[in-house]
Design a protein around this nucleic acid. Structure first.
Lengths: 201, 201
DNA sequence: ATGATAGTTGACCGGTTGGTTAAGTGCAAA
DNA sequence: TTTGCACTTAACCAACCGGTCAACTATCAT
């Protein structure tokens, strides 16, 4: 334990900020250490490699977003359609706030790392994939509530959840490429249009 | 002119392959040169910088995809809905073929570079954005044909085109992260579900 | 034959990359 | 008081990064 004992946490936060606002490749270990006020040796005392650090960063993002975004949006105190609207609204506000602070819209930390590293690092690819699957589960469970109420259509809730997540990831990709948060507000509500029926319906 | 005269083209193709299959950061100038069978000095005779090379690569991808994908899918010989289905089908086949050749699903070259560099290189960000806008125009024009026939609804064709592109980019992002082309076939057809109405409808 | 020029070559540059190492320092348990 | 271990420090590493350069060659019009 350090006197302060927060060295690992400072490295993690520094890495979060730098990797998210730049990219995996652009965020060097030296820069991460400098921002954290830590020597490189300490860094490698807590993390065996930059890749392991990145996996920890992904876990950290997941934990935060699960409480601040997914959990909040999908709290069962609102009708299902409203939950998705809430998700989009929180997403918009959060991306806008981050964009104002960082000067640029940064998009989805999972999507960013997935796109950058999926072809180059199998471990990180699987990590991002797992996070996506977890998020999909939130979507799917909400859809199942809705599908049970509306018995006429045989909704493929898994596929629809997948498609909704894809749509939102695509919106964040476009918003980042256009550096414009309003895209989220303009396109986001259409997430409710998406519906994939089961084969044997 | 060289005896062969194809040096520039070979560099371009090598860069296309490496940047697409890896990433901007991972595709080094030395590796691009080696694959093209060219010395580094020749590289910098034809391209002033790696960034300029990347802009040329983006133009090259655009030219190819405009004839092989957009132009083919949106040829006016089919009903509008069928054109989008055709787009998805070509996308699926192409991504599957590339995935089998490269060993990994590679996704959208524009989306990949947009996500990786939007926050770090304003010129490339604008380039990718411009390509997205061009592609959106294909979508929008098709939607306008459809909207004219169906006069009941006041469709916001620009926003709907934007949303459809976002959805497809998101599908490619997920397909890459999951390394599975079937996602494209499973989710792609839902692109027809998306519809954004004009404010004053 | 000559001069101009497009293209090529390979050595070279300073800076940075992720990662290592040996020598400490400070605290906690025995 | 001593031992042990978590943690820190700063110097160091080979490999690689994007980019430069002066010298060279092949091809062209004159």
């Amino acid at each position: 334990m350090t006197a302060a004992g927060d060295t690992r946490q400072r490295i993690l936060e520094s890495a979060r900020d730098l990797i998210y606002s730049q990219s995996y490749a652009d965020a060097g270990v030296a820069a991460i250490c400098e921002r954290a006020g830590v020597r490189k040796g300490s860094f490698y005392h807590f993390f065996p490699s930059k890749r392991e650090l990145t996996l920890a960063v992904l876990d950290d993002f997941r934990t935060d977003l699960e409480t601040e975004l997914w959990g909040r949006a999908f709290a069962p105190d609102a009708p299902v359609l409203e939950r998705f609207e809430r998700f989009v609204e929180i997403l918009y506000r959060q991306q806008k706030a981050v964009a104002e602070e960082a000067g640029r819209l940064l998009g989805c930390p999972f999507g960013n790392l997935g796109v950058e590293l999926a072809t180059r690092d199998e471990v990180i690819r699987q990590k991002v994939d797992g996070i996506f699957r977890d998020l999909e589960a939130y979507f799917r469970e909400a859809l199942e509530v809705s599908a049970a109420a509306d018995e006429l259509k045989q909704v493929d809730t898994a596929a629809t959840a997948e498609a909704m997540l894809a749509f939102l990831e695509g919106i964040l990709l476009m918003a980042k490429t256009r550096n414009d948060p309003e895209i989220i507000r303009r396109l986001g509500p259409a997430v409710g249009d998406i519906l994939i029926l089961a084969e044997d319906s």
